[in-house]
Design a protein around this nucleic acid. Structure first.
Lengths: 199, 199
DNA sequence: ACAAATAACGAACGATCGTGCTATTAATTC
DNA sequence: GAATTAATAGCACGATCGTTCGTTATTTGT
């Protein structure tokens, strides 16, 4: 990796971290340059526009997300085990950044500001919700979850639970947030299980 | 109401509306003044600081919320009926602003920015979660909901469902969002119900 | 080691940010 | 209707925003 790439990555990494706290719009060229001991213009030259910086910040976070959540989860055998892996890896993911999950924060921030950044975020969220649904479906197929379970509805419920947890942790700083999220998850899994068939 | 109060209210009303789309930080004095055909300084004099403007914007939205959600819901007889009123009035509330629920948007935006604004938002969210839990508890007391139902956990699940709906509607613009939210709500109510006791 | 390529800098731009002042105009009170 | 108070406008401030440009360092490939 040449010099250019490696500073670019350092910038994007820091931008991602800042964005979870200040919002994607709150990450300013001047602030980034100061934090990284660079000149504004030197930093700016890597992207050519703030929008491009935001786009690349998103792509960088996507890569991190794939590496630390998607891949490990898909490496877990399908069924309830994979559903559990989904929960555990996502919890670790959100703890890896000071402001929690990058995508949760950015999605709520930009949900009403038209443009390519919003479009990309929407695309990724759609993908992610689809992945969750497929993971639930794999548990149905395996016989772990009820045959009549609706994977899309399940994804909606699961995702909502995680968003409520985000708020309880980041805004309310509720020490009971994590345990409650675990209980909510366990309750969701429990009611999703197939009733054991008589032998 | 004298002239001062009535322009102040007009400012706060518009600030609230804008905040659901641009974020609370995105509502700028200049933008507000231009939209309302006022001078920046004239508008500014009503508040004395941007933080005070944000605080009063929050208070104004709180009043709107109490009038259009809390009061009608509490006027409904306790039990499942009140739980349903909660859902219906909240759906109407979020539809009343272009960017959806003001508090959902502001809470995610400011969850990592220390200060009195964040503190106030956290306080209101805590209150609101408490109210939801009490509404669920009223349904337990009435015998509509299971006796072993945990109202706090119920509030967490209900609130999460609403947040997932916010995202599906605002970010994804998914036409199926509202129906899915309804189905998720009905499923939540159904599994919360008391099993009918044999007579 | 040298030449070509690229990364970083410094200074400046117009715009806008929040925030002061001082005047002036409008609304309220007597 | 005059006197007083309150609301609004005008102008300017220092800071910061994203962005551009010309120049200087530094890395890279040969």
């Amino acid at each position: 990796m040449d010099k250019g790439q490696q500073t670019r990555v350092a910038i994007l990494e820091h931008a991602g971290r800042l964005a979870t706290e200040l919002g994607l719009e709150g990450v300013t060229i001047g602030r980034l340059a100061e934090d990284l001991d660079m000149s504004k213009s030197g930093l700016y030259a890597h992207f050519g526009s703030k929008e491009e910086l935001q786009m690349q910040t998103i792509e960088r976070q996507r890569n991190r997300f794939i590496a630390s959540v998607v891949q490990p989860v898909l490496a877990t055998p399908g069924g309830e085990a994979r559903v559990r892996a989904l929960f555990e890896h996502w919890m670790a993911w959100r703890a890896s950044q000071p402001g929690g999950c990058f995508f949760a924060a950015a999605s709520f921030e930009l949900d009403d500001r038209p443009g390519p950044v919003r479009d990309r975020l929407a695309e990724l969220q759609r993908e992610w919700l689809g992945s969750i649904a497929r993971i639930a479906a794999s548990a149905v197929k395996r016989g772990d979850f009820r045959i009549d379970l609706d994977p899309e509805l399940w994804a909606h419920e699961y995702y909502g639970m995680m968003l409520a947890y985000h708020l309880a942790e980041q805004l309310l700083r509720d020490p009971g947030a994590a345990p409650r999220a675990r209980r909510a998850f366990e309750a969701l899994v429990a009611r999703s299980r197939a009733v054991p068939t008589a032998v």
